[in-house]
């Protein structure tokens, strides 16, 4: 379609990247975290809604539980199914991350545009020796690249590599 297709055909192709999956232990962390959130939701519903209107609107309470349960199940199905879609790839000059099952997203950040980067470990991740790496560029920072659940050694290696690239 482009007029300069001669060049474009020789360009490094994002579709032929060798994507690496994130560590499978991260799924356990994700499941545990979501289980925590959902139990809070159920307990909250019990104390603040169900207990208050149980006598007058028993029917609604049951529907409420049903609705919560359905949303919960759908959430977990999407979480588990989407897990294998979380993958990242490193090239000489950029890093890519792809995720999502309902909306598939692929983001690539050229190293030359990286402002700074962070490697951090949450308590549960520490148990599995996993870490997350977050890469910041200029502009609105909420939508930058973040990869969760990669082995800490790997994360530090990536950080080292990008830092070297920037400082060159």
């Amino acid at each position: 379609m482009f007029e300069n297709s001669q060049i474009t055909s020789d360009l490094p192709d994002i579709e032929q990247l060798n994507f690496l999956k994130i560590h499978k232990n991260y799924l356990w962390i994700l499941l545990f975290n979501s289980a925590l959130v959902w139990s809070v939701a159920f307990i909250g519903f019990y104390f603040f809604v169900a207990a208050k209107i149980a006598e007058s609107h028993q029917k609604f309470v049951n529907y409420g539980y049903l609705l919560l349960a359905v949303v919960c199940v759908v959430y977990f199905v999407i979480l588990i199914a989407g897990f294998s879609r979380r993958k990242y790839a490193l090239r000489e000059k950029d890093i890519s991350y792809s995720s999502g099952i309902i909306i598939e997203k692929l983001t690539t950040v050229p190293f030359a545009r990286v402002q700074h980067l962070e490697v951090d470990q949450k308590p549960f991740s520490r148990l599995f020796k996993l870490a997350s790496i977050q890469i910041f560029t200029a502009g609105e920072s909420n939508d930058d690249l973040k990869i969760n659940g990669i082995p800490k050694k790997e994360a530090l290696k990536i950080k080292e590599y990008i830092t070297n690239f920037i400082n060159e």
Partner: peptide, 27 residues
């Protein structure tokens, strides 16, 4: 350009189309 994003919903996937979102330092 700061970074680039390719986004495809399952509906878009059926039609084989995708959105491109460019991140610049100004939005």
């Amino acid at each position: 350009m700061q970074h680039i994003k390719l986004r495809q919903s399952i509906f878009q996937k059926r039609k084989n189309v995708a959105d491109i979102i460019l991140q610049t330092a100004s939005g």
